[in-house]
Design a binder for these strands. Structure first.
Lengths: 348, 348
DNA sequence: TCCCGTGTAGAAAGCGCTTGCTATCTGATG
DNA sequence: CATCAGATAGCAAGCGCTTTCTACACGGGA
């Protein structure tokens, strides 16, 4: 039924070994033989059996990419960049690799399960994106898994995620703290003193780092911090909407709202508008990430641009062994403050 | 070095066959034995070798999802829904499957290459999303590939893509034509007569269908169609921006702009605003898809909502054989007109 | 002329798992 | 008490490919 290597070999009148060598091209084969084999492959419409070859060679050409939410452009952009580099079809030379994008939904268990699945497939590399959950047992479990993967020869790269101690994983971290600090600093510089903060889900490194940056900026300016001005939510628009109403309820005199990310900021804008408040005249709004739609918001969003595509591309290259890992295996990627229309001098 | 089935068998004092059966759970194994095996698996931290088992069983637990652009929420949302259904970790019972999201970038060659790669992996199912390219040779090549995949036992589902004739592929098509017609009809109903149309890339079914719907609406209302009022571009914001400037240059008296999709519409809004035109007072704008950010645009976007998540979920279920394919293997999914702030009565 | 290095090709031993078939043991049946 | 169906477990033959080791040819140097 299905064509196998042996069929091709028979047709080309060579041994299976030779066909394999032609296909893998890492062993000298006379030009005439090679051509004969290639012709047979073509005539029989032969397609290599991936599992069989992975089994025999003890390696596969799968590369795993773990994301929290594939429907979120934040991850989509990184995944896209990573994938472009791992050399799927259309990529540079080298064996074609299949990118396996896994949607963890932010759940630690699923993250672990996917890692196991990838380990089971003997993935060539794994790139984990997005913040990690700050749960000690889980962090330990992930670290153990990463160690095991590394032992099995899988290259592990963290992209936009804090380093995993005691692990061979290379980490490209986003400087969330620094970015957040610059952002809030900008708002304070404009004269804001009563700032609401819509944080992401608790227990996530990204959430904590951004919040820390925010607080550091407040502290640096001697602005007293009121815990009631911080609300936690999810990283989506809906959450921004709800949180904003809540913040407004708690303190209607807020002059600025800093959101965990751009989607949240958009939800905040909607809530403010519905509440009859103008942006930025009544309340300034700031996001984080600078996703493509942020510039189209009205007013366009003041935010921190994260070089998602660049970081992803670099992570992809490192995962493929095409670029040297940063010294110490850790690099911090800075964001850039983008001041736009949604932030202005406070009223009064 | 690595733990194998045999090691587990030795430890549990049973044969490899028994271990395999416990792990696959499709053969009676005494409870006590099963427990002993499971304990051994746990103690040895055993992870099944995917390729080996795929080879032996002649099937794999990989499911391919082809998308045009993973960074685009349009595809991200569908991919996410599909993946949730194919039962990755956290999904319903059944073997855990790994979703392989492949980014074709809209390129026919890459599409074909990915299909081959999936065929090589003996994928359990493949879901192709997004419009197809209208190139006869390519369409034939894809059809041939799909046929071969089906022959090899891979289930093939098209989601948001026109049916592939002479193929066993199940198709869930979006009614782009009907949606576009309703959308333009809405604008005409408001009184618009000079409508610009920003189409997607030529040679794509989605582009053509939406354009046909638009023209059908114009024809139905007896509005003469001026070819100069249609511009082709890509499905992104930038393209919408450029195309709008071009349309405005060609005919400054336009009162409405219909975009190929929401991203394009947002770009159009930006361009209009930069040109000093108000939306919708001076020019109405309409998009397509109703992506999450569209409701947050200012004014919020009039568009056609496509049930991306629902269609994806259904495609996923069909791919897993958990839902009956529609009669004839083809179903048309309708969009819903969402009238919002970006469309209004024309000036003058 | 003989020997050996070089360039190619083949033989064959697995890689780790699944599964059809067979073997064994149990309690129930006649 | 012999027989047998039913429930479990093991044997062993692959699945299709890679790769080590070996074999063979050929041409040049001694």
């Amino acid at each position: 039924m299905t064509v196998t290597l042996a069929d091709v070999a028979a047709r080309a009148q060579v041994s299976p070994a030779t066909v394999s060598r032609v296909l893998n091209g890492n062993y000298p084969v006379a030009a005439s033989t090679r051509e004969r084999v290639l012709r047979a492959v073509d005539e029989l419409d032969y397609v290599l059996n991936g599992p069989a070859s992975a089994l025999a060679a003890a390696t596969s050409d799968l590369v795993g990419i773990l994301v929290n939410d594939i429907a979120d452009p934040f991850f989509g952009i990184m995944a896209s960049a990573i994938q472009a580099e791992i050399g799927g079809p259309g990529g540079r030379a080298g064996g074609e690799r299949l990118a396996v994008v896994c949607n963890t939904g932010g759940s630690p268990e699923r993250e672990l399960t996917y890692l196991t699945l990838l380990q089971r497939q003997r993935a060539a590399a794994v790139v984990l994106t997005g913040g990690a959950v700050e749960d000690a047992p889980h962090a330990a479990a992930v670290a153990a898994k990463l160690r095991k993967l590394a032992d099995a020869g899988t290259r592990v790269v963290l992209c936009g995620r804090p380093p995993a101690p005691d692990t061979e994983a290379v980490a490209l971290t986003f400087d969330n703290r620094g970015g957040a600090r610059a952002l809030t600093g900008h708002l304070i510089g404009l004269g804001h003193r009563r700032l609401g903060y819509i944080a992401g889900p608790e227990e996530r490194t990204t959430t904590r780092h951004r919040l820390e940056g925010h607080r550091a900026a407040l502290a640096a300016a001697g602005v007293e911090e009121d815990p009631r001005r911080t609300v936690h939510g999810r990283y989506d628009r809906r959450s921004g909407h709800e949180a904003t109403l809540e913040l407004l309820r708690r303190d209607p005199s807020l002059t600025a709202i800093v959101a965990a990310n751009d989607s949240v900021a958009l939800g905040a804008c909607a809530a403010l508008r519905e509440s009859g408040l103008r942006i930025p005249e009544d309340v300034s709004v700031a996001g984080f990430d600078d996703l493509p739609f942020s510039i189209d918001a009205v007013p366009s969003l003041t935010t921190v641009r994260l070089p998602l595509a660049e970081a992803g591309a670099r992570a992809g290259r490192i995962a493929m062994g095409r670029e040297e890992p940063p010294p110490g295996g850790i690099a911090s990627v800075r964001g850039e403050l983008m001041v736009r229309g949604s932030s202005g001098v406070p009223r009064e």
